Amino acid sequence: MVKKATTSAPSQRMLRVGERVRHEISALLARGEIIDPLLETVTITVPEVRMTPDLKLANVYVMPLGGGDAEEVAAALNAHAKFIRGRVTPALGLKYAPQFRFFVDDTFDEFGRIDAILRSDRVQRDLGPREDEDE
């Protein structure tokens, strides 16, 4: 009996369902169906949704436009998670309705940090031509 190797990479099905969930949640947020004073005043992007292998939990990463009040927006979305689940699940056609957990997407901050490191004098000095090299 051949044993299948376990990997931490998401399967094609997890990626496909995650993208469908991302699309449906984005559309729901764009329609403004959630009645919440904070959510009505911000535009929210959904850059990524990560599904668990059993497709029963969706980790939804969100970022308000401009990045302000990100933690409050994620908390408000988590407070409305059951409503969002009820609106999004019928469009997915899955056997089980996934639970949604909303998190602040920090990839933009991480990009900024890496970009600042790459632009630093120390790194630029290492990337430039060496003094002992002939051109």
Rank of each mutant, 00 (worst) to 15 (best):
N59I: 01
N78M: 02
V104K: 08
V88C: 13
V73R: 05
D106W: 03
A97P: 08
S120A: 09
R113V: 10
A74F: 00
K82D: 14
F108Q: 15
R50Y: 06
E40I: 00
L65V: 03
A91T: 10
P98A: 14
K95D: 14
L65I: 06
T52R: 11
F108K: 08
V42D: 03
V73H: 08
R113W: 06
Y96Q: 14
T43D: 00
D106L: 07
N59K: 15
M51Q: 12
M63P: 00
L57A: 00
E71Q: 09
K82F: 09
F111W: 02
A76L: 05
A76P: 01
F103R: 08
I44D: 01
T52N: 10
V42A: 03
R122N: 06
T52H: 10
P47M: 12
I84G: 11
E71G: 03
P47H: 12
L65H: 01
V123S: 13
Y61F: 15
A116C: 04
N59Y: 06
E71N: 07
G66V: 00
R122W: 10
F108G: 05
D109A: 14
E72S: 10
G93Y: 11
L94K: 11
R122P: 01
A79D: 03
F102C: 05
I117K: 08
K56H: 05
I117E: 09
A76Y: 03
P98S: 14
A97L: 10
T45A: 14
L92P: 13
L118W: 02
D115G: 02
R113L: 10
D115R: 13
D121I: 05
A116E: 09
D106M: 04
A76E: 04
K56F: 00
R122V: 15
L77M: 04
L94R: 12
D121F: 06
M63G: 06
P90W: 10
E72N: 11
H80S: 07
T107W: 01
G67F: 03
V60G: 11
G68M: 06
F100Y: 12
Y96E: 14
F111A: 12
G66W: 04
E110A: 13
M51T: 13
G112D: 00
D121S: 15
A58M: 07
R122M: 13
V73T: 10
A75V: 00
R119V: 02
L57Y: 01
G93H: 14
P98W: 12
R119N: 02
A58N: 04
I84V: 15
E110K: 14
L94A: 14
Q99H: 10
T43Q: 09
F83R: 08
E72M: 02
E110C: 01
F103D: 05
S120L: 09
G68L: 03
T45K: 11
A116Q: 08
Y96C: 07
A97W: 13
